Lab assay of single mutants.
Amino acid sequence: YFCHCCSVEIVPRLPDYICPRCESGFIEEL
């Protein structure tokens, strides 16, 4: 997954599918 807020590849935090770095939901499956 790619976080558009951090502009990095991340492993989303489940079950909410949010970025573990910034806690944004603005992520996209690569």
Rank of each mutant, 00 (worst) to 15 (best):
D16C: 05
E23S: 13
F26T: 15
P20D: 11
E9Y: 07
L14S: 08
F26C: 06
E9T: 09
E9P: 08
E29G: 12
E28A: 14
L30G: 15
D16R: 08
P20C: 06
R13P: 10
C3V: 00
V11R: 09
C5Q: 13
C5R: 13
C3N: 01
L30M: 08
L14E: 14
S7H: 00
L14V: 08
C6Q: 05
Y17K: 15
V8R: 09
S7D: 11
C3L: 01
C22D: 02
C5Y: 08
P12E: 10
C6T: 02
E28L: 02
H4Q: 12
V8I: 12
I18R: 13
E9A: 14
Y1W: 03
P12Y: 01
Y1L: 10
F2H: 12
E9N: 13
R21D: 07
I27V: 08
V11A: 07
C6R: 04
I27S: 15
E23V: 03
C5T: 14
L30S: 14
E9F: 04
H4S: 10
L30Q: 13
C5V: 07
P15M: 10
E28C: 07
C3Q: 02
E23G: 15
P15L: 10
Y1T: 02
I18C: 05
P12F: 02
S24P: 02
I10W: 04
C22M: 07
F2V: 04
D16E: 14
I18L: 13
L30P: 07
E9K: 10
R21S: 10
C22K: 00
L14I: 02
G25T: 05
F26E: 15
D16H: 08
G25P: 10
C3H: 01
C19L: 00
Y17A: 14
L14F: 02
S24R: 11
C3A: 03
I10F: 10
E9C: 03
I18N: 03
I10T: 10
Y1D: 03
Y1M: 06
I10K: 11
I27P: 09
R13G: 06
R21F: 01
I27H: 06
P15F: 01
I18M: 11
R13N: 13
I10S: 06
H4N: 14
Y1K: 11
P20W: 02
V8C: 13
C22T: 00
F26L: 15
F26K: 13
D16T: 10
P15G: 08
S7E: 14
C3D: 01
L30V: 15
L14C: 07
E9D: 12
I18G: 09
V11H: 11
P15Q: 07
S24T: 06
H4Y: 05
E28W: 02
I10N: 08
C22A: 00
I27A: 07
E28I: 07
S24F: 08
G25M: 13
H4A: 07
